[in-house]
Amino acid sequence: MSLQQIKTLAMSQSKRLYVTTMMQVVGRALQAISEQDEEIQKISSAFPEGFVFSMQVLPNGPGFALRKTADNSLEFLDDIPTEKPDLTIYIKHLEHAFRILSFQESTAQAFANDRMIVDGDISFAIRMTRALNRLEAYILPKLVAELAIKEYPHIPLPEKVLHGARIYLRVATNFISQQVKFA
């Protein structure tokens, strides 16, 4: 194997690791924000109870899935269900997922660039994208969030810090409890 091939392989594996990790973070963060943010609960209120949303990289992942609960929050699922989710946003390639999750390409621009396809109700996909945008506005520094979403909303700094901290704490707790569960 040439040095170039080794470099390429390492790069590809790093990207896969990054995308896998970020998918887990985004999925868990969506659960976290949905438990505390009324706006997200309003967004998910249109989904029927038990509605499963997933985001996956073609052809075989990585990805994550969430299920809507009775109180309009979104529950992170440890595994993508074998039964077809109600709505799936497929990202066509790992490279595209890397661009999106490293905020080089906003979700809207990724749709416009045909990086993603929707399997399910388009209006629900629009709602989920709105939820993702709101999440990104809270958990990313403003400079990064401005790259990830079309327009950075007005969020007072104390609210952003408090909200963001709660989401990160919830994600960390979720990760730790999963480690304990599998230990």
Partner: peptide, 13 residues
């Protein structure tokens, strides 16, 4: 209108 698929492609949020 907010749930319509085409809103995604509008340049302004």
């Amino acid at each position: 209108a907010l749930d319509d698929g085409s809103i995604m492609f509008n340049p302004a949020e």
